[in-house]
């Protein structure tokens, strides 16, 4: 497979997944705010903080109003990680490999893109109900893309590159969604463990589509401890970080042909170390480190895996 093609399929999947997760971010925040008692000021700064693009936002918008943040994250064509920009990039990547992916995949990305550009022209951030509906559509279109890809494209090398792109992006964003709660401030320390606190954790689970599955797996009660455990360490829930890393590692070894547990390339080594760490961690270890600190470290290790993907597969230079 051409290096450029592998790179494009990888990014196509990352961008679609990223768009979905931006929708989840904004959605979780809107839901958290709707559950807040009146009189508590709206908190939009934390969500921008978790994207890592705070300076860019401040430079372009200044004030953290709902309208500004929604516009920035959703429809700002000049912000490279907005939903609109993600879809534009996803489509550009799909267009450059449309002979490799299935026609159904291309058609779906194309109409997904058209749906988002149309919304960017017609929807305003003030109209919350229509914006919320739009986020639902974005999430569904992203699921549909993954399903179409799963069911119409041969599960070959290119498909595995796509899987890695999607799973690495998802792991990164689940970490960030979890981090939103860290930044959202309760009105006072007395609220810890209160109904409001619990409502916020529930909203967070819902935004990761994890609420129902969390309730079902035996541990019914909502506690910060077990929510974090579920989203980071669960082996079976498809949005948990550990699940994503395990599956990404499997795809990686399908591409290289090296058995899991052994490595020949730097990316296999970095991914394998990350996966084994997650295998043997407990939630208590994580809380001891500090959840926020743990998540930050995890994100930088996942970025490192991404860099090594690039060095290993995409940046092939001729020997001269």
């Amino acid at each position: 497979m051409l290096s450029r093609v592998a790179d494009s399929i990888y990014w196509l999947n990352r961008y679609v997944e990223r768009a979905e997760n931006v929708a989840r971010f904004v959605d979780v925040n809107l839901n958290l705010l709707l559950d807040s008692p009146s009189g508590v000021s709206q908190q939009w700064e934390p969500i921008v903080l978790t994207t890592g693009d705070l300076p860019l936002f401040q430079e372009r918008y200044g004030e953290f109003t709902a309208e500004n943040v929604i516009r920035f994250l959703t429809f700002d064509g000049d912000y490279p990680n907005s939903i609109l920009s993600c879809l534009r990039s996803a489509r550009e990547n799909a267009r450059s490999v449309r002979e490799i992916i299935s026609s159904e995949m291309w058609q779906h990305v194309n109409s997904f893109y058209l749906m988002v550009t149309e919304a960017a022209q017609s929807k305003t951030p003030q109209d919350l109900s229509s914006v919320l509906k739009f986020y639902e559509e974005v999430k569904m279109a992203s699921h549909l893309f993954a399903g179409v890809m799963n069911a119409t494209m041969t599960h070959n090398e290119g498909w595995h590159f796509g899987q890695i792109g999607r799973l690495m992006e998802r792991a990164d964003k689940t970490a960030r969604i979890l981090d939103v709660k860290y930044f959202i401030l309760l009105p006072s320390v007395n609220y810890v463990g209160s109904t409001l606190d619990e409502l916020q954790w529930m909203a967070l689970l819902k935004s990761a589509s994890a609420y129902e599955m969390y309730r079902k797996r035996g541990q019914h009660r909502i506690s910060p401890h077990s929510v974090a455990e579920f989203l980071i360490l669960d082996q079976e829930f498809p949005r948990s970080i550990r699940f994503c890393i395990m599956q990404a590692e499997r795809s990686l070894h399908q591409i290289t042909g090296t058995p899991v547990g052994a490595w020949q390339t730097s990316v296999e080594r970095a991914m394998g170390r990350l996966r084994t760490d997650l295998d043997y961690l407990t939630i208590d270890d994580i809380i001891d480190t500090g959840l926020h600190e743990f998540l930050e470290n995890l994100q930088s290790r996942m970025n490192d895996v991404g860099d090594k993907m690039f060095e290993t597969f995409f940046a092939l230079q001729a020997v001269s």
Binding site: M1, L2, S3, R4, F161, I255, L316
Partner: peptide
């Protein structure tokens, strides 16, 4: 940019 001449032949850069 996917192609390069090497060893007298035209070659393409692949993941392998």
């Amino acid at each position: 940019r996917d192609l390069v001449v090497q060893d007298g032949y035209l070659q393409m850069r692949t993941t392998k």
